[in-house]
Amino acid sequence: MTTQPARASKTRLSFETVSPYLYILPSLLLFTLFVFYPFAKTIYLSLNLTDQTGSAIQFVGLDNFKSVLIGQSSRDFFFSLQITLKYAAMVVTGSLALGLICAILANEEFRGRGLVRTVFAMPMSISSACIAVIGVFALNPTMGVINSLLGTNIKWLRDIHYALPSVAVVTVWMNIGLNFIFLIAALQNVDASLYEAGAIEGANFFQKHWHITLPSVSPTLFFLLIINVINAFQAYAQIRLMTQGGPGKYTRTIIYAIYLEAFQNNRYGMSSAMSVVLFIILFVLTLIQFKMEKKVTY
């Protein structure tokens, strides 16, 4: 390494105070352009009437929000919200429970464990589009394997009772991988002496996991809960490819409704207002989850 000439030391000093900002500049610029600016723009558009190209043409204050929350679009919006909540509840409980079961099983020692772990983690590499088309095929009333295995004759994706659970099951499958990975890592950090103490007390398999494992991995479960809820609220590909929001509006989640409002109806102002409401809902949900975590975790 070369030694700096003494003369340059003063300029280097001032460069040293500026240089940390240069390291963060690329990310900061990109965030500004593609996260902060669109976020501000979404709020701005939500307060305006827009034209076909998405430019604001008239400031309308909270009219869009009124329309979404209490006006003519409110029935559709709250129906979408209800669908989204049902969907999120099914997806989140299903994928957390299965992820945890997989992690507990694959944390025990047995031959072939490595292969089992690979399979449990693998869904994280499969795209929602791929698993959605496989789902569409498997659930096809006449050609699909599901009806033929169950001996049923159900139009899974065209029936208002089965469409949403069908999409949810496919999403649960997708989410298992990531939940499994984080939970098995958490399990490996659980203090082994806790299990030894449990064994002395004579705890069986289920007592052991209920009283020791579950509390020990609860921080990871909360972290995953937040991620899973946010992802469930944002699901798009599987709904588009499996049901297109149908039958009727029975799988039209908020994100899907936002998309339709913008690109089918060209009402970018309304769609932005719905996006803002979605953001507030997610923000409140995350806050509640953080509050809960503080209360429950040991």
Binding site: V35, Y37, P38, F39, K41, T42, L45, G54, I230, F233, Q234, Y236, I255, I258, Y259, A262, Y268, S271, S272, S275, V276, L278, F279, L282
Partner: peptide, 8 residues
Amino acid sequence: PGNAIIIA
């Protein structure tokens, strides 16, 4: 949420 700002 990424999908909420995707239209902007």
